[in-house]
Design a protein around this nucleic acid. Structure first.
Length: 561
RNA sequence: AGCCUCAUAGUGUAAUGGUAACACCCCGGAUUCUGAUUCCGUUAUUCUAGGUUCGAAUCCUAGUGAGGCUACCA
């Protein structure tokens, strides 16, 4: 396969290509191994795209990517999370085929490996408390000291471990430790815990077990068992690699996977900590894990983000070991870019002012025909009703127009998008000076034709017919959950939520919008991108729209640049 | 403090000892029935100091800065 335009390979893909070229591996098997203790977020999307992407790219040699739930801690894991994770991976467009696994299905194997280590004199039962262990482990500069249990004989360890498994001990009474090196400069090697006692119900294995393996012990064994060739994880596991390799070397495993670390995704102004997201959900600060406010995959889905755009973004940020922070502007670009091509256009008015067309009878008509997409005629046209009264956006009218303002003002012209050019011939204000009504006249014969000679009309604005326009709830989202908001008060992350940002406004929308299907995205903002997604509404009821991508200027500048 | 890892425009990522580049962002201009899109253009980059070499972003040493590690979480 000669490819003149060889795509640039990141360092991981290079390693994999090498292993294939040198014959070290005949194929490549990766895995995405989430713990089902929460919903996936944009950071996980990067890992999903990496692992499943590599499998896809090497499909020619039978490469695969497993979906494996790393469920070794029954206290934090739930079936709800398993289902949401599957749905999110699918939504991103990836398929694990028949390769769906649970670490909990390997509990017997982990146990056998533990017994093997004990027999080899490489593991022992520890009866010190967690506090005592912490103390005897030493610290960054001083080596640890052996506990009495470290010199226990094999038979006694075997017996104690069997009794641990049989449920004879309470939680915390004892653990199984590997006997490695108490003086290692790598703390992970100072006799790490292999098994702890937990008398709790497991979402998959129920009460079959009361001892559960630790991540460091279980993960390499899971990988080896599944013949994973390249086990890709994030940078914080770098110091765990020697331990990973130690288990591979010292346990009876069927293959030798290699762990490779890459930098996790950090996005500016975005909270990506599972712990904090959990706190937001459990504290009732958001409507759930799939609240469009959150950077979860399900939240992005409800925002109307196209999955292809998210995947494209993940590819574009690349894979390195550099621990940086990606500007959300990169994500937003991909979202806008995909939506721009795919989203049909609709009109909506959020902050309405009524315009009365005084000479309505000059050109009587009931509907106008408007294209669904400005550049793509294949998307067709729609007919929308119009009468002598329409709503327009308050900010599309200026009593005293500033320079470079091209829309409506006294005695000025503007086009009602898809319909006539109108001229403002008067307006009314209330006591506070707020515009309450605009009087205008339409220019007959200006539908679908260029601006007539002698008329200055440089803009086309959104409008909605007063008689037939439909009301809909429009939720407006800014990027609320930020840890870097300069205006945020000090303290917990909750202080950075801007309570004013979650607004619900009643917008006037064109009737065509009231009939859209759930999941429909469209653009209806004149100024920037303003994508609506009809979410979760039953047929026949009014859709709820959420604004998904902030206007170019409105938010980012506030972030201080 | 010890060990491990990382460092290229504002941001992310290329360049694999041979002319430092791409995308985003920003700014300016043209077009536009969305102040969108599209098109054109501008600014700006190898952390520091030594060394190896004809030649260093790349290799070596030291320094600086950032991240990780002292869980019976993953």
């Amino acid at each position: 396969m000669s490819d003149t335009s060889t795509p640039k390979l990141d360092f991981i893909r290079e390693i994999i290509a090498d292993d294939l070229a040198t014959g070290k591996h005949a194929t490549t098997i990766t895995r995405f191994p989430p713990e089902p203790n929460g919903y996936l977020h944009i950071g996980h999307a990067k890992s999903i795209c990496l692992n499943f992407g590599i499998a896809l790219e090497n499909a020619g040699v039978g490469a695969k990517c497993h979906l494996r739930f790393d469920d070794t801690n029954p206290e934090k894991e739930e079936t709800e999370y398993v289902e949401s994770i599957k749905a999110d991976v699918k939504w991103l467009g990836f398929d694990w085929g028949s390769d769906l696994y649970f670490a909990s299905d390997y509990f017997a194997f982990f146990h056998d490996c533990a017994v093997h280590l004990i027999k080899e004199g490489k593991a022992y039962v520890e009866t010190q408390s967690a506090e005592e262990m912490r103390a005897s482990r030493g610290n960054l500069t001083t080596p640890g000291t052996p506990s009495p249990g470290r010199s226990r004989g094999v038979e006694e360890n075997l017996d104690l471990f069997a009794r641990m498994k049989a449920g004879e001990f309470k939680e915390g009474e004892c653990v199984l430790r590997a006997k490695i090196d108490l003086a290692s400069s790598n703390m992970n090697l100072r006799d790490p815990v292999l098994y702890r006692i937990m008398h709790s119900e497991h979402h998959n294995t129920g009460d079959a077990w009361c001892i559960y393996p630790m991540y460091d012990f279980a993960h390499p064994l899971e990988d080896a068992l599944e013949h994973i060739t390249h086990s890709l994880c994030t940078l914080e596991f770098e110091n765990h690699r020697p331990l990973y390799d130690w288990f591979i070397e010292n346990c009876p495993v069927p293959s030798k996977p290699r762990q490779i670390e890459f930098a996790r995704l950090n996005l500016s102004y975005t909270i990506m900590s599972k712990r904090k997201l959990l706190e937001l959900v459990q504290g009732g600060h958001v409507g759930g894990w799939n609240d469009p406010l959150l950077p979860t995959i399900s939240g992005m889905r409800r925002r109307g983000y196209p999955p292809e755009a998210v995947v494209h973004f993940c590819k574009r940020v690349g894979i390195t070991k550099f621990n940086g922070t990606t500007d959300v502007a990169l994500l937003e670009f991909d979202i806008r870019d995909f939506l721009n091509h795919a989203a049909p256009r609709r009109m909506a008015v959020l902050d309405p002012v009524k315009v009365v067309l005084e000479n309505w009878s000059a050109e009587p008509h009931a509907t106008v025909e408007v294209p669904n997409h400005p550049q793509n005629p294949d998307m067709g046209d729609r007919h929308i009703p119009i009468s002598n009264e329409v709503w327009i956006e308050r900010e599309d009218f200026m009593e005293v127009p500033e320079k470079k303002f091209f829309r409506l003002g006294p005695d000025r012209y503007v086009r009602l998008k898809g319909a006539n050019i109108i001229r403002c011939i008067g307006y009314e204000k209330d006591a506070e000076g707020k515009i309450t009504l605009i009087r205008a006249e339409l220019l007959p014969g200006t539908i679908g034709v260029d601006t007539p000679e002698g008329v200055v009309c440089k803009a086309a604005i959104h409008w909605v017919d007063v008689a037939t326009g439909v009301d809909a709830e429009v939720r407006i989202y800014d990027r609320l959950f930020t840890e870097e908001d300069p205006d945020a008060a000090e303290g917990g992350f909750l202080s950075v939520i801007n309570p004013d940002s979650l607004k619900t406004v009643t917008a006037r929308i064109e009737p065509a919008l009231a009939e859209v299907e759930p999941g429909f995205s469209c653009q209806f903002d004149r100024l920037g991108y303003f994508i609506a997604d009809a979410i979760d509404h039953a047929p026949g009821t009014k859709p709820v729209f959420n604004r998904t991508v902030a206007l170019k200027d409105s938010w980012v500048k506030k972030g201080g640049r």
